[in-house]
Design a protein around this nucleic acid. Structure first.
Length: 852
RNA sequence: GGGCGUAUAGCUCAGUUGGUUAGAGCGCUGCCUUCACACGGCAGAGGUCACAGGUUCGAAUCCUGUUACGCCCACCA
């Protein structure tokens, strides 16, 4: 208990209380709690990029509001924190920070010193280093970044239990990730397959459907004739990718398209390259697109893959993993013609093919420019190609209707906030077109824990993978050796070989509930927190993080991973565009914390309704600052009345006996209603509503009720019972407001609470309505009269303290009792000598100002 | 092409099952240097609730349609 300060201030309270909370373990999870007492949160692990941006502040505050409410409402809150440091963003950051690049062919260098630590010059050529050296640098940088992040999150006032923390690349995450995958393999939910796959030619890795996005790109229709092999004419196609003519394996048109029905089953010759292909029918062919008949190539797009599979066509792959056309012509393709494009990138090959077509007179008309959507890896710079390779998949309902229905059903088990976000989930699940591709041909990530036996020729047997023992996890198959083999049998005929791929980052982060809850390591803890109560996250990763987590939970635990999914919106800049670095309009949170105070920044976040994209607004932060300041000052004022040496006399427990005045009971009745509303709102995760109701009554309380009763509270009228009533009601109200605001303004409320308590406000119980049964409406006509008196003084341009000789209040009969009950308070608040009440249709005042 | 969301004061937004004169904050105007707060207080001006129909005694709220903006999804020939 610090007592009431002479001059309350918000300056410096963040560091003081953040340190205190850490010392006291205020937010520590009680591991002995039973499940019913626990509120568990599957916190999003932010990508550790070295800086916190406003989007983090915004959404993490939302989660913290709910966590703080639940804690005060009596729950033990499991609020862990994770860092997502696994995957491409870290690889990129390591490359840029140290001026290196990973080349698996390089030899490991003991004690390697990178050329730079931070900001290599722009013209610096990245130094190739081995994979182990690269991973060491990843670990080093991640550790530095995480320290910076933790400081920022503490400064934001998150009530996280920092002892419950994890990183998606740490040993526990690797173990959980590998163990869950091996369970998937054993149950047949995970499998490897050689198949056409979306492929980023720059990152040289396979890409999942969820990481793919459409971008509008210019292209052009090239009209090209295919000669019928019986010489009876030609069929013309329009294609945007003439460079794939050499990969053509068939033509296709819609089965009902009368223009092409006569040709189904006949053959044509591919121009330039001479291979003979058949004309096929398939419903996916669209009669109104292009010329109505298309060529099928292996592979130009995902429709080609579908056609190839369903029509059981042959394969003529021409694009390699490096994005270049193969140097050798595929089967049946004219080698001399192909030589002109061999080894080129697709865009170069296209120019060459068009030139070639022109030379041969096989281009009908000029290419017709169009804008069309092209698939990109969301982090990539060049269009995705489709390359055949062996990859690992987890069944997610993309190929199995029954599983798909089960995944949709899991979505209905969740309570979505806001509810309409479920549509996005349904949309995504129902639109899946394949299983979840989890293997990546990258370096920094969790290794796929699999080996393959090699036959006498040294060829791996992919159908009989060697699995490690769960007790040995985590493992790295590139250095660890499977049971029954010796290290020197690695990559030898009759020996074994390790899987070189790693898991996609989502394959690990889809297990955050299991990682944070110590699944497979502390079953008691896991049972206390799982399924979690809440998954907070951004709505743009429903199709990735949210869906993937549901998939893993469905397979492993046969339930939904949480009961509530709370989706937060985005920050928009004042032009209503999504805030982004490239636009140069990102503001750093630390500067805002320092300028406005953390509580003020949190206030801005808290005033945004759940799931709604929200404009960045420093004005809102100023309002929050004002609110925090007001809370300090009104607390000081109220608590100072009747205080001794800055200390408030201990509270009487018996409000019923102390609060006797109808006016005071009316105020507490209004507060009761707000407590009920705020509680109801928080139970529905609507923190913004709770704030708005609380704040609205708070200002009314400061401006009206305090002003009305302060003279009685001072005891200026020698009304002892009235004074006791006023003081008890004021202190009760202040105690309630301080707790109602605690989730929103954790620093300011802790500051004022400690003036008169020895406990943390964040460990206090959430307010419940009093049992006084006051008449909430009683004060309304009273305050109306007070406002009229103020208006009269304002219009007369005199001070609000100016004395009034006489006021005649005209008011409807039914309000007379109420106004009479506040007669003395009104007279004192308005400095009125004589106040009379007469009948009238509406409340009105006739005021005689005293002569000055 | 399918789906979802939003549209209320100059700006940012509330408005809970349809119910008197549509609310708040910021900004703006005027006033008060008041003994909790000038990082303050009091008061005031400001709205055809996107548009068009419909249901109803009564619509910002429900229904239909239209427009604008944003987002998600979709097989890109």
């Amino acid at each position: 208990m610090t007592g009431i300060p002479e001059k309350p201030t918000l300056d410096g309270i963040e560091d003081r209380w953040a340190d205190q909370w850490e010392r006291d373990g205020t937010y520590r999870f009680d591991t002995s709690a039973v499940r019913d007492q626990v509120f568990s949160i599957d916190t999003p692990p932010p990508t550790v990029s070295g800086e916190l941006h406003m989007g983090h502040v915004f959404s993490y505050t939302h989660t913290d509001l709910v966590a703080r409410y639940q804690r005060m409402a009596g729950k033990t809150v499991f609020y862990p924190m994770g860092w997502d440091d696994n995957g491409l963003p870290t690889e990129r950051r390591v490359q840029n920070y140290y001026g290196v690049r990973c080349d698996p062919h390089e030899q490991y260098v003991e004690g390697f010193e990178p050329p730079f630590r931070g900001d290599p010059p722009k013209k610096h050529q990245a130094v190739p280093i081995s994979r182990p050296n690269f991973l060491e640098l990843c670990d080093e940088l991640v550790e530095m970044d995480e320290q910076v992040f933790e400081e920022l999150y503490r400064r934001l006032g998150l009530s996280v239990d920092w002892t419950q923390h994890y990183a998606t690349i740490d040993a526990r995450s690797r173990r959980v990730s590998q163990q869950a995958f091996l369970e998937n393999v054993r149950r047949g939910e995970a499998y490897s397959q050689e198949a056409p796959t979306l492929w980023d030619i720059d990152f040289r890795t396979a890409v999942a459907q969820a990481e793919m996005e459409d971008r509008e790109r210019p292209g052009a229709y090239h009209e090209i004739p295919f000669q019928l092999t019986d010489g009876s004419g030609s069929l013309n196609i329009k294609t945007t990718r003439p460079e794939l003519l050499a990969a053509c394996v068939a033509m296709v048109a819609h089965p009902d398209d009368e223009r092409f029905q006569p040709y189904f089953g006949t053959t044509v010759t591919v121009p330039l390259y001479g291979q003979t292909v058949e004309v096929k029918a398939h419903e996916l062919a669209q009669p109104d697109k292009g010329s109505g008949i298309a060529m099928i190539c292996t592979f130009g797009d995902t429709t080609d893959v579908t056609w190839w599979r369903e029509l059981d066509l042959g394969m003529r792959p021409i694009i390699g993993r490096d994005g270049r056309l193969h140097t050798e012509a595929p089967d049946g393709v004219d080698a001399a013609a192909y030589a002109r494009i061999a080894g080129k990138y697709p865009n170069q090959a296209q120019r060459e093919v068009v030139e070639h077509l022109r030379e041969e007179g096989l281009l009908i008309g000029e290419p017709e420019p169009i804008q069309h959507p092209v698939k990109f890896y969301e982090r990539g710079d060049r269009p995705l190609e489709i390359v055949t390779s062996r990859q690992w998949y987890i069944a997610n309902g993309g190929r199995d209707a029954e599983l798909n229905a089960a995944m949709v059903a899991r979505g209905t088990e969740l309570t979505w906030h806001p509810g309409h976000m479920q549509h996005r989930y349904d949309n995504w699940v129902e639109g899946l077109n394949g299983d979840w591709l989890i293997s990546r041909q990258r370096f920094f990530g969790v290794p796929i824990p699999i080996w393959y036996p090699l036959d006498a020729d040294g060829e791996p047997d992919f159908d009989a993978p060697l699995l490690p023992d769960v007790a040995d996890l985590p493992i790295d198959p590139s250095t660890d050796v499977p049971d029954g083999y010796n290290a020197d049998q690695r990559d030898q005929p009759g020996g074994f070989t390790g899987e070189t791929d790693i898991f996609d980052t989502w394959a690990t982060s889809s297990l955050t509930p299991q990682i944070a809850g110590h699944w497979g390591e502390d079953d008691g803890l896991f049972a206390r927190v799982y399924p979690y109560d809440m998954r907070p996250q951004a709505h743009d990763i429903i199709r990735t993080w949210l869906f993937a987590t549901v998939v893993r939970s469905h397979h492993e635990h046969d339930c939904a991973p949480w009961t509530h999914a709370a989706l937060s919106g985005w920050i928009l800049d004042p032009d209503r565009k999504k805030m982004s670095k490239s636009k140069g309009n990102v503001v750093t949170p630390m500067g805002l914390f320092e300028q406005h105070g953390t509580d003020a920044v949190r206030y801005w976040s808290a005033s945004a309704r759940p799931g709604i994209d929200t404009a960045f607004s420093e004005d809102q932060m100023k309002v929050g600052r004002k609110l925090a300041n007001k809370l300090l000052n009104v607390s000081k004022f109220v608590l100072s009345i009747g205080a001794v040496d800055g200390h408030v006399p201990s509270e009487s427990a018996d409000l019923d006996a102390d609060v006797t005045e109808p006016v005071d009971r009316s105020m507490l009745a209004k507060l009761d209603a707000v407590v009920a509303e705020a509680t109801e709102a928080f139970e529905a995760f609507d923190y913004a509503r709770a704030l708005e109701r609380t704040e609205s009554l708070f200002w009314w309380f400061c401006d009206n009720h305090v002003e009305l009763v302060k003279n009685r509270a001072y005891g200026t009228n020698d009304d002892t019972a009235g004074q006791a009533s006023a003081l008890a009601a004021l202190r009760s109200a202040i105690a309630t407001f301080q707790r109602l605001f605690a989730p929103f303004l954790p620093f300011a409320t802790e500051e004022v609470w400690n003036w008169w308590h020895n406990t943390s406000v964040h460990a206090e119980s959430w307010p419940v309505p009093t049992a006084l049964g006051g008449d909430a409406a009683l004060l309304d006509p009273v305050i109306e009269v007070l406002t009229l008196i103020r208006r009269a003084k304002s219009e007369a341009k005199v001070s609000q303290r100016a004395a009034v000789d006489r006021v005649s209040v005209a008011a409807p009969n039914e309000t007379h009792d109420a106004i009479r009950s506040a007669h003395a308070d009104l007279a004192a608040a308005g400095t009125i000598a004589e106040l009379e009440i007469v009948e009238g249709d509406v409340v009105a005042c006739d005021i005689d100002l005293a002569a000055t």
